[in-house]
């Protein structure tokens, strides 16, 4: 599977994640699927509702956030294709906590923010048997 993301949306995610540093931040990815390609059309930042003292290494949204965004995507003719979050001062690879809480068929973008600066972004997909994530190709577009 290939993920198409504009450089402008990548920068938008990076700015948001630098803004929540040293805590984790995140949001939803809205887009479309066509064959083996997921095109991300919009990114919607969602407030981290995890206990404040744990937000340096944890991120969570509420079920209402999900319901509202899924309904919005349906209304806009788009699909809720995934979500993004940051790893402050850590690499952009999924943690065991990420795997346990992950959904299949859902794109996971992780951005590494080191000392307040977003330095890398990788995209992941949970295997169908939930055993691990596989890294996906990120096609950055002008």
């Amino acid at each position: 599977m290939k993920i198409e993301l504009s450089k402008a949306l990548q920068q938008k995610i990076f700015k948001q994640m630098e803004g929540t540093f040293p805590n984790e931040g995140g949001g939803f990815l809205l887009g479309t699927r066509s064959g083996n390609t997921v095109s991300i059309i919009d990114v919607i930042q969602i407030e981290n509702i995890f206990e404040s003292e744990e937000q340096y290494h944890r991120y969570a949204m509420s079920p209402k956030n999900w319901a509202d965004m899924e309904d919005t995507a349906d209304e806009r003719g788009m699909t809720l294709v995934g979500y993004y979050h940051s790893h402050p001062d850590s690499p952009a690879i999924p943690s065991e906590y990420d795997r346990v809480h992950a959904l299949p068929n859902f794109v996971y973008i992780i951005s590494s923010v080191m000392a307040g600066e977003a330095v890398e972004m990788f995209v992941w997909l949970l295997r169908d048997d939930r055993s691990a994530f596989d890294q996906l190709e990120l096609d950055l577009q002008a």
């Binding site: 995890f50 079920p63 956030n65 979050h85 809480h101």
Partner: peptide, 10 residues
């Protein structure tokens, strides 16, 4: 009924 995932990461 509606199934709604809680998104979480870390």
């Amino acid at each position: 009924l509606r199934i709604i995932p809680s998104i979480a990461g870390g």
